[in-house]
Structures are given as structure tokens and as C-alpha cells.
Nucleic acid binder design. Structure first.
Lengths: 206, 206
DNA sequence: TTATGAAATGAACAATGTTCAAGAAGAATC
DNA sequence: GATTCTTCTTGAACATTGTTCATTTCATAA
């Protein structure tokens, strides 16, 4: 027995198909919304039977949740790439990056936030943790900007601030609701941060 | 022909049933979530056939949308009942009232914000208008507090601020996401307003 | 009372998630 | 390489649920 990961032909095919299913599912959600995602469409596009989808993911929620997991992972990567030299600039960068990501992948993010599980099964904890982790990315710059504040309070503030930005962006991009032009939305988010950081006693960008 | 509204026996029964259907549907959404709402369950609980539901509402979306319409109407009534003598107090009152209403009717509000139409039919415009109207209720107090500001800017600010509060509350009440204790959430919203109004140059409550 | 037309009915249909017995295919053993 | 074993794949059948519509029911009008 080799301690290197055995890559049997069967495993390879299985893995390749798994990726195909996810790719197709993500494409459908992104382009036509979560409600338009159907098992049979996915199976046909991938070229396998519906049974194989179930075999790989257990149930349909499994496919959706895996796509959601990758969405929040990609979001986190993007947010973590925001430069962190200047904490104020970092806060603005996080908000702007979230806006860009949301605008690019609106339906994927809606799937992440709006999907309800069948029956009353709990939402997978690892996804919740990842979302919380992303929302906590405002924590480090806030710590630097408010060195005297209680750490627990800053954790709360970080979540509050990110939730507020999320509300502004998600409703602003809800074309059916508001239809704020993207450029105006960007400005709106910036002005929001201007006022809020000022209120926290944080000096704006020069 | 009497110009008084004819109330034929047929119309009475029709109207009574319409109310019953809505009552049952709202109850199911409120207690078990939109995903648990089924035509047959509603029909059985009301004591009529599924055909009657369709006869009255056209399709199932019609039932949901009518419930949503009443939800936003009730929300508006509650928000309009917030005292308006002191504009600062009014802003805090609007946020606190929204929090209370959301906490009491979480599933109904989620139905309002998360329901996607079948196919790509547009969301009814009157509901969107009512939501926008509710979110504009911060406008009058903000005008009083910022007498020198451009009215269009205040309209934007009102929507931004309410959207932010919505984000904080809707994510905060998403037990699966965060599970913020209600009392802490109330405090969170207040502190958020404290900071933001301060940033806008508005003096806090004495 | 009878005729009329609108409303109610619910069986049948359609779309879609889910299961599972049978078969196919790779892996293991000889 | 043949055989056996294990696992995966298949897709027909089933279950659930939204939707339709020919038929029946029933309040109203004549």
C-alpha cells in the first residue's frame, strides 16, 4: 500500500464528473437563478443520469450547498486580496470589493443567502462559519483604527458594519426593488462609510 | 340598479373564502416558512378545492404576493405609527419598530424579500412601490435634521440608511447565520445609529 | 319554477425531486 | 487472462406538488 493518494481510474472519473456537475449547476444558478436549477437539466448537460447526481451529492440540496460553499470561498479569497497597509483604505476596499463581487455574481450570492433547506434540516455549519469569517474581515483594520476599544465590541462592530454594507448592496442590486445604477451604488456605499467612520471618530482618507 | 355596492350572497361567500385562504397561507408561511406552503394544504385547511384557490388568485404566486402585499402594508402602518415630534427619536423609533416587526414576523418578511417569481415574470410594481415607500419613511425626519441638504441626496440617504438597518436586522435574525440575541441586536442597531448620525453631524439623544 | 351563467370541483396532467433493482464497469484474486 | 467481487451507473418508476379544464353545483334572473 502506497501512502500516496491512490488515484484509481474510477476515482478520476468520479472526480471529473463531480466537477462537471458543479460547473453546470453553478452556470445555471448564475445565469438563470436558483429557481431554474433542475436535476434533469444538470444531468443532461453533464451527460449522466439523474441517479449519478444523487449518488455524488446525496440530494439536490447537496449540489446547491456545494456551489454555495465555493461561492463563499471565492468571495473570501477576493476579500482577502484587499491590500491591508492602510486600515481606512482597507475598509473602503472591502466594501468596494464586496460590491464588485456581488454585482458580478448576484445570483450566486442570492443562492448563498436565500436558499432554505428542505424540511427543517440545519444549514451546514462550515458554510455559516465561512460567511461569518468573511464578515469578520473588517475586524483587523478596525482594531488598528480603534486601539482602545474592547475586542469583543470590535468583533460586533465588524459584523454590524459588514451587515449594513451587505444590506445596502443586496437591496441596491435587487433590480426589481430599486434599480440603483451601479456607479451610483458605489458612491452610495462610499458615502455610507464616510459618515459611519466619521461617527466612530475615524479620520477619512486624505 | 342601486349604486350601493351589491353584496350578493355569492360575492359574500367568495370574499369570505378569499380571506380564509389568505389567513391560512399567511399562517403557514409565518410558522413554517414559504417553502412549506402547498396549495393542497391551504385548500384542505380552508375546506375547498385546489381549483378554487386558482379561481381566486390565478396561480400560486398570486396567493404569495397577496400575503406579501399585506405584510408590507402592515409594516408600513406600524412604521407610520412611530411618533414624529423629535426627528432623532423618530429615526431610532423607525429602526426599533422595524426590528420588532421583523422579529415578530421573520418568515413573512423573508417571503417578501426572498420570493422569486416563476419564470421571469416581473415582481408586481405596487408591492415594490410600497416597500420603497416604507424605506422612505426616514426621509421626513432626515429633512428636518439636515435642512441644508439637497432633497435628492436625502432621499438617497434615507434609502441607504434603511437598507443598512435592514441588513443588520435580517442577518442578525438569521438564526442559522449569526444567532444574535434579540436584546443584543437592539443594542447593536442603536449603536449603529449612534455612530452614523454622529457622522452625519446629527446630535444624539440627550 | 325554470333557465342561465358564474363559480366550485377534483380528477387528470405536467414538472420535478427521489428511490432502487438491475446492469455495467473497474478492481481484486487466482 | 479469466473469474469473482465491489462499486458505480442507469433510468424507469414513484412521490410530491403546481396547474388545467370538463363537469357539476348553485345563486340569480326571468
Amino acid at each position: 500500500m502506497n501512502n500516496v493518494q491512490e488515484e484509481s481510474l474510477r476515482d478520476q472519473k468520479k472526480f471529473r464528473r463531480r466537477l462537471q456537475i458543479l460547473e453546470v449547476a453553478r452556470g445555471i444558478i448564475a445565469s438563470k437563478g436558483l429557481r431554474s436549477l433542475k436535476v434533469r437539466d444538470v444531468a443532461e448537460a453533464v451527460g449522466c443520469s439523474v441517479g449519478s447526481v444523487y449518488n455524488e451529492f446525496g440530494d439536490f440540496d447537496g449540489v446547491i450547498l456545494t456551489v454555495n460553499r465555493e461561492t463563499v470561498r471565492a468571495l473570501t479569497v477576493r476579500l482577502e486580496s484587499v491590500p491591508g497597509e492602510d486600515p481606512v483604505r482597507q475598509l473602503y476596499g472591502l466594501a468596494a470589493t464586496y460590491l464588485d463581487f456581488f454585482a458580478e455574481h448576484a445570483n450566486l450570492l442570492r443562492s448563498l443567502f436565500e436558499h432554505r433547506m428542505e424540511d427543517d434540516r440545519p444549514y451546514p455549519d462550515d458554510i455559516l462559519q465561512m460567511v461569518m469569517g468573511a464578515f469578520a474581515l473588517m475586524h483587523p483594520p478596525l482594531v488598528r483604527l480603534l486601539p482602545d476599544a474592547d475586542d469583543v465590541k470590535i468583533a460586533l462592530l465588524s459584523r454590524t458594519l459588514f451587515s449594513a454594507v451587505h444590506g445596502i448592496i443586496s437591496l441596491g442590486l435587487e433590480e426589481r426593488m430599486v434599480a440603483v445604477p451601479p456607479q451610483m451604488l458605489r458612491q452610495q456605499v462610499e458615502q455610507f462609510l464616510d459618515a459611519h467612520l466619521a461617527g466612530l471618530g475615524i479620520l477619512p482618507l486624505q
